[in-house]
Design a protein around this nucleic acid. Structure first.
Lengths: 216, 216
DNA sequence: AGAATTAATTGCGCGATACGCAAGTTTCCG
DNA sequence: CGGAAACTTGCGTATCGCGCAATTAATTCT
């Protein structure tokens, strides 16, 4: 036990946990692809379980519903944003760091561990299947919470301060608005989504972090 | 038919529709009170229906689930915000109007048609029952959409513009942050929630509507 | 006002799901 | 290597959302 760092970070991943997370992701992606192919309403839980080789009961041990399974990869974005923010240089202004972090999710490195341009297919599926909206919102809310604590940690603010809560909410609201706006401008190939997100977040953050704003 | 205004606004309410909305609200409030009294998990759909005097099938004609029924009054806030914003004097700056509208929801006139301080009991119930979080988020999202179109209407912006989307999202994100912040400050009687909301929204809106911002 | 049309409510029943429980199996740690 | 903990699985059950068809109430037309 000499070369192992003393419980640093979130990486006490034992073999078992890795397999666990692997099957979880397998189930999520299987559900996603089946829904993409046949429509969410046609997909049955036993079908998803069979596609991965586990029982229906096991599926429900991982997810309370097929919707939750499909949306699962989106829930990991919260942790990703938090760690990305923590990885930003300490001297960087908070506003710039946040813009980079959120916009980075739409860059090439934003989909690690997932199929090629998974994000596009995901957005299309969610737009086409209203049954997914609820779960999608839950994932966003969870991500917002994680981002808020990350901001609080970075600014050394009290956990119950208004600032981090407000900033996290505004940043993610800006992201959502940008995505919706971009989706409405049907098929403008020249304008990458990442850029729209970047400008929207920058715009929204201006009032909270600029002169007179309490956060830096 | 002399004293009735000529189909002005959203009030072509025929008798039938009024009864419809009345039973809908009855179901919603019955579900709310039962959940408050016995815990959401113990409440059965037939129980709610019986409390109002309709069949289980009818309940499901109005709501797809008991959660949706409980949250229903919250969904009306979207329409309220939209109409309140439309009722603001045309000369008033958009930022001020938005602050007033949102903060007004927490004032004495914010709970018209509902039991006394319904909002407090509702918040407590939602906090205590995780099963309600999803529906609550859906209601917020719907309200955000309504507010966005109201803003677009007021600013004469194109429906697919980024501005209204962004502003509506930021305003409601600020409201949520304020409420969460207020709820964490367990029991500070001297600080009214309406004030916290007002300051938070004002803070968040500053960057979008101030100098350099595109909206007025 | 009276009849026709339209909409809402109800009963019935099916398909699907979420979860508790107990037994079997795999992994972890000393 | 052996015990303990955790994961998986099968089974059974209560609940739910909704489609369908019949009944009842309300609105509109003449």
């Amino acid at each position: 036990m000499a070369h192992v760092s003393v419980s640093s970070g979130p990486a006490p991943m034992r073999r078992r946990d890795q397999q666990k997370e692997q099957t979880r992701l397998d189930l999520a992606l299987a559900a996603f692809e089946l829904a993409q192919a046949e429509g969410l309403a046609q997909v049955r839980v036993p079908q998803i379980a069979a596609a991965v080789g586990v029982s229906t009961r096991t599926f429900n041990n991982y997810f309370p519903s097929k919707e939750a399974a499909i949306v699962f990869p989106a829930t990991m974005r919260g942790a990703r944003m938090a760690s990305d923010l923590a990885g930003c240089p300490a001297g960087q202004p908070l506003a710039d760091a946040l813009v980079d972090v959120v916009a980075g999710l739409y860059g090439p490195r934003g989909q690690e561990g997932l199929p090629e341009n998974w994000i596009d297919g995901f957005r299309a599926l969610v737009a086409a299947e209203p049954s997914l909206h609820g779960e999608c919102l839950k994932a966003q809310a969870a991500g917002e919470h994680e981002l808020a604590v990350a901001i609080a940690r970075r600014t050394r603010a009290d956990g119950s301060d208004l600032g981090p809560l407000l900033l996290a909410g505004v940043v993610l609201a800006a992201e959502r608005a940008a995505v919706r706006h971009w989706a409405r401008q049907a098929e403008r190939p020249g304008v990458p989504l990442a850029e729209v997100v970047r400008t929207a977040v920058a715009l929204a953050v201006r009032g909270l972090t600029g002169p007179g704003g309490s956060l830096t």
